[in-house]
């Protein structure tokens, strides 16, 4: 049946208001839950990179463990600790969007560092967040380096839209465990990073190489570039901590 233009316009406006209203209510109503999920997810990834958390089911227990064992600081490109931003407001490491910073020049970014403490309070491992481009969209990582600042303790990858079953596999335990025990510096102390090679089931991998993912070479390239870039950015801080560690060792 043919209806007047006025009817159509009024109908569309009313429909838009109703549907838009529903969506706004849902969005606002679910926001706190979603934020908590994101926060939990971030802390889970930080902890997951250093320690086995698969037995912890309760989210609150996880958050408590995080508060107890993780200390966060923020460093700049020179490796100096930053406490306030340009406006003089304090910076909280967990609130830093690595994704937003990724678009800035490496020199202008601030870098969160998470120190994982052992039961006795001494530093056990360092967790470095990273960001990069995969094949389709962003990829990210939390890389945990042992207290020797060379050996990889663990790594937790994340991604937005890597191909399910192919590039998406970077989030699986199988792929992530390949990084464990690899080293980021070579014997002469230069940054070597860790490279994911092409193809699966490679033999004779060096201490700086991990096995690849069949069908996901482009994702692997993104992962390699991300590790290269961010380890480079964290290098000044790592060197600084290392030399300070040496000084402490000498004075003792």
């Amino acid at each position: 049946m043919q209806r007047s233009n006025t009817y159509i316009i009024i109908f569309s406006v009313v429909l838009t208001i109703i549907l838009g209203g529903m969506l706004s209510i849902a969005s606002v109503g679910l926001k706190p839950l979603q934020d908590k999920q994101v926060e939990l997810d971030t802390k889970k990834k930080i902890l997951g990179a250093v320690t086995d958390i698969s037995t912890i089911e309760d989210p609150n227990e996880l958050l408590a463990l995080y508060d107890q064992r993780v200390e966060s600081i923020v460093v700049d490109f020179e490796g100096n600790i930053v406490e306030t931003n340009a406006k003089g407001e304090p910076i909280v490491a967990e609130k830093i969007s690595v994704q937003k910073n990724y678009r800035m020049k490496p020199e202008d970014r601030v870098y969160p560092v998470y120190k994982f403490k052992a039961e006795d309070g001494s530093i056990d491992a360092y967790v470095f967040p990273m960001w990069g481009n995969g094949l389709w969209d962003w990829i990210s990582a939390y890389m945990a380096i042992d207290k020797d600042l060379n050996t990889v303790r663990g790594i937790a990858f994340d991604h937005k839209a890597e191909t399910p079953g192919l590039g998406e596999r970077i989030t699986t335990e199988v792929i992530q465990s390949r990084y464990v025990g690899k080293e980021i510096f070579n014997d002469s102390g230069e940054l070597e990073s860790i490279t994911m090679v092409k193809g699966e089931n490679n033999t004779g991998l060096s201490i700086h190489e991990v096995d690849g993912m069949a069908g996901a070479t482009m994702t692997a390239k993104g992962v390699n570039a991300m590790l290269d870039q961010y380890l480079g950015c964290y290098q000044p801080y790592i060197k600084k901590v290392k030399s300070e560690g040496n000084k402490v060792a000498l004075t003792q």
């Binding site: 159509i8 549907l19 849902a26 969005s27 679910l30 839950l33 999920q37």
Partner: peptide, 29 residues
Amino acid sequence: PGRVRIIVQLAVIATLVTLVSEILKAYYF
């Protein structure tokens, strides 16, 4: 109205899909 029915259908579907997506994000992250 017959003349805008496809858009109306699309709007309804899109609203429901967005709801599903939001709920998944809140409960099954």
